[in-house]
Lab assay of single mutants.
Amino acid sequence: HNLTITQGKLFFHYNPKLCLSEIHKMEEVSGTKGRQERNDIALKTNGDQASCENELLKFSYIRTSFDKILLRWEPYWPPDFRDLLGFMLFYKEAPYQNVTEFDGQDACGSNSWTVVDIDPPLRSNDPKSQNHPGWLMRGLKPWTQYAIFVKTLVTFSDERRTYGAKSDIIYVQTDATNPSVPLDPISVSNSSSQIILKWKPPSDPNGNITHYLVFWERQAEDSELFELDYCLKGLKLPSRTWSPPFESEDSQKHNQSEYEDSAGECCSCPKTDSQILKELEESSFRKTFEDYLHNVVFVPRKTSSGTGAEDPRPSRKRRSLGDVGNVTVAVPTVAAFPNTSSTSVPTSPEEHRPFEKVVNKESLVISGLRHFTGYRIELQACNQDTPEERCSVAAYVSARTMPEAKADDIVGPVTHEIFENNVVHLMWQEPKEPNGLIVLYEVSYRRYGDEELHLCVSRKHFALERGCRLRGLSPGNYSVRIRATSLAGNGSWTEPTYFYVTDYLDVPSNIA
C-alpha cells in the first residue's frame, strides 16, 4: 500500500525493539523526510534493546553428524571492536523451508527459537588472519532439518551509529543413524509349514526405512522333555500350542467401542483428552525405555581390526524358502538304536541362519518350516543398504507352526516275539517326523474274553527296548493296539495285532 503524509511529521519514542533503520525507511515511504526535528525521533529510546544489523554474515563451514552440527561463519568486528559482546545463534526444527525470524513471537518477546549466546573469538592483530567464530550444536535429532541463523550482539553506541551483522536463515539436516526397533511384532501360524509375521514401523526411523531383515531359527525343545518319565503317576503330560491366527481386521481397528449394538453396526467412541494424553505418555515412556535398553543392555560386537582377528559373527547367506525346513542338525536320541526319531534339535552355532529381506511392506510369510516346531524370529529395521547396512537392534518374537495331521501315527506293522515265561516283546517304529517329539506310547492289549488293559511306555523305555515287553501273560489269544502321544496330543491307534500265548508248562520236552 502507498502511504503519503502531505502535512505533519513523524514522532517515535520509547520503541526499544524498533531499529532506527526501520524508522528511516518509514520517513522515505511516507514522504516526511526532512520535516522531523532532532528530538522527534529519539536516538536513545528507539532500538536500544534490539540488534540492528546492516551487514550480512556468511557461514564459512558446515559439518553434520547424526546428532551434531558444527558451524563456522566469517569474522565480524565493528569499528570499535570492544562493542562486540558476542553472537546469538538461533535454531529450531523446520520440516519445511518457510521459516521466518519472527515465527511464534508474542507480545512478551518470546519466540519459538532456541538461542545460544556465543563469546567472540580472540581478536588477531592481523586483519587478514582473524579467527572464524563458530559453535557445535549438540543433542539434535537424527535425520531432522533445522533452520539456523546467527547475528551479532553489540553494545549501545553513544554516537548512535547503527552497526551489526546478521546471516540469512539456512537449512541444515542432520545425518541418518540406526533406527529404533520395529514396533509390535506379531507372529502367527496359518499352516503346519508357515508363519505369518506382521509389525509396525519404528517410532524413530532416523532416516528413510529402506528394508527390513527377518531372521528365523528353529528352537530346540526343553531338555526336561527328553529326561522326564511322563508315565509316572502324578506327572502331567506336557503340551505345546501353536500360535493362533490373526483376529479379523475389524476387531483390530483402534479407537473402536468394545460393545456392539445388537441391531447392527455401531460407531466408534472418540477417545477423551485424558485417554489420548495417557497414550502419549505411555508411548514416550516406551521410547525412553527402549533407548535405555539399547544403550545399557546391548553391547556392540567388536569388529575385526587390522591384526587379522576374525569377526566372530557368522556370515549372512541367503537361502531359498524351500530350504528352511531342514535348518537344524538332527541327532538321534540314543545312538545305539537307529530307529528312534531325530527330534532332539541342538543347533550348531556355526550354522548360517536363513533370512529374508523385506522391502516396502511390514509383513512376511515364512514358508518351508517344520510342522509343530518353535521358531525364534528376529526382526531388524534398516535405513541404508549400501555401502553397508545400517540397521536397528533386533526385536524378537516366537511362534510355533501348526501340527501336521497323521504325523504322530505309527507307520509300519507292530511285530512281536514270544519268549519263555510268557513274555512277549512288542516292537514298532517311532514316527519319523512327529509333531514336536514323542513323549510316550500307549499300549492297549486284551486277552479274548477279558477286559482291555493299558500300559504306558516312556520315551526312554522305548529307546532301550525298541518297544516294550509284556510279562506274566496268561495263555490265550491276544490283540494289541499302540498309539503315540506327542507334544500336540495323541496320534491314531494302530491296526490290531494278534498273537497267541501258550502255557509254557505244557511245552513238550526233548528229553527222552
Rank of each mutant, 00 (worst) to 15 (best):
A407Q: 14
K278N: 05
F372T: 03
P245L: 10
I438W: 03
S223A: 14
N208K: 15
G472A: 13
T386A: 09
T485K: 09
K287Q: 06
T343S: 08
D323N: 11
G476A: 03
E442H: 09
Q219W: 15
S239G: 08
A405T: 08
A405L: 06
D311P: 13
S392K: 02
G322E: 08
C468D: 02
H425E: 11
S243K: 15
N421L: 12
E389A: 07
N206R: 03
I482Q: 07
K317D: 06
E362P: 08
V501A: 08
E281D: 04
G234C: 15
C266Y: 12
D250F: 06
E265Q: 15
D291Q: 04
L437F: 13
S262T: 10
S248C: 15
L237Q: 06
F215M: 09
E442W: 13
S341M: 13
K361L: 11
Q380I: 15
T210V: 15
A309R: 11
Y212I: 09
D229R: 01
L453P: 03
V214E: 01
E404K: 15
S268K: 12
Q275P: 03
D250A: 08
N255D: 07
T272S: 12
A381P: 08
S257K: 04
W216N: 13
Q219A: 12
E388I: 12
G374M: 10
V393R: 01
N255E: 07
R447G: 03
E221D: 06
V414S: 02
F499Q: 08
N422L: 05
E495R: 14
S509L: 14
S251M: 11
Y448T: 14
A405K: 12
F226K: 11
E417C: 05
A463P: 05
V327Q: 11
P338M: 12
V501N: 06
E227L: 11
N208F: 06
R446P: 00
E430V: 09
S363Q: 12
A407Y: 04
V297W: 01
E417Q: 10
R301S: 02
H461F: 11
L225H: 07
A263W: 02
N477C: 13
F285M: 06
P332K: 10
E217L: 15
R466M: 13
S305L: 13
I209S: 10
S444Y: 13
F226S: 10
A399V: 11
N208Y: 09
S283K: 15
L228G: 07
T494S: 14
G472I: 11
V414Y: 01
L505A: 07
G467Q: 07
D323K: 03
P403Y: 08
S239M: 11
E351T: 13
Y292P: 02
P270G: 00
L225R: 13
K236F: 02
T386Y: 00
V296L: 03
W493A: 00
L464M: 10
N383I: 05
C468R: 11
E258R: 06
A335V: 12
K460C: 07
N208A: 08
S479M: 06
A395S: 10
Y375S: 01
G449F: 11
S305A: 09
M427Q: 05
V393T: 04
H425P: 04
P205L: 09
R446W: 05
R286S: 02
Y500W: 14
K253V: 06
P270W: 03
S398Y: 13
T333F: 14
Y230E: 03
P300N: 03
S363A: 12
T347K: 07
T241A: 09
A407M: 12
V423W: 07
S486I: 00
V439Y: 14
V507L: 00
T210I: 15
V331D: 13
N255L: 03
E279S: 04
T494F: 00
A484P: 07
E452Q: 14
V457C: 15
C266Q: 06
